[in-house]
Amino acid sequence: MDGLIRLWKWRLDERRRVVVDLEILRANLERQMEKLDHELETERKVATQHYEASYGFTAYRKNNRERHANLIVSREEVQDRIAAAQEEVNAAFRELKKYELVKENWERRERQKQERREQAEMDEAGLQGFIRRQERPDNMPG
């Protein structure tokens, strides 16, 4: 049972690492989107201040928006993968708990058996002592 518990703890840890990695990926995609937004705003300011720069701004804005849209799609895909990975974490956790409960129940039953054996031994010792006291000649009615 201990081997199964170790295996499922390892599987749970692995699945949690996948979720963390995906969360990091999602955060990176969001940072890239923010960076694109910031760059677009910077370029817009330059284009409004310099007539020559305004010629290329339309093409730049189109390219920026396409990249931003691609990042949104990627982020949504990663969010779907995060949800699936989180479900795998939950399933691994449930499986681990199942084995841990089996082990706890087994250990509890073993403790109860041991306690019953010890109690039976103490009862037997007490009974033997009582019988010995009863068999002594000084306890005999007279």
Rank of each mutant, 00 (worst) to 15 (best):
100 E>T: 03
89 V>M: 01
104 E>L: 14
94 R>A: 15
66 E>L: 14
98 K>Y: 10
53 A>H: 15
57 F>T: 00
67 R>G: 06
123 D>W: 06
44 R>A: 05
72 I>S: 07
50 H>A: 07
45 K>M: 07
103 K>S: 09
22 L>W: 01
104 E>F: 10
93 F>H: 14
77 E>Q: 11
29 L>W: 01
121 E>L: 15
66 E>V: 12
82 I>K: 01
126 G>I: 11
66 E>I: 08
52 E>N: 10
121 E>P: 03
33 M>W: 01
100 E>Q: 15
38 H>L: 14
76 E>C: 04
69 A>Q: 13
75 R>S: 14
67 R>D: 08
36 L>K: 08
24 I>F: 10
32 Q>K: 07
108 R>F: 08
89 V>H: 01
29 L>V: 00
50 H>R: 08
122 M>V: 14
36 L>Y: 03
49 Q>S: 12
89 V>W: 01
129 G>V: 04
123 D>E: 15
42 T>W: 06
98 K>I: 04
44 R>Q: 12
132 R>W: 03
119 Q>L: 13
111 R>D: 05
96 L>N: 00
95 E>A: 07
62 K>S: 13
101 L>V: 07
21 D>S: 14
124 E>V: 08
99 Y>V: 00
109 R>M: 12
34 E>S: 11
94 R>P: 00
31 R>K: 14
27 A>F: 06
113 K>I: 12
110 E>Y: 06
74 S>N: 13
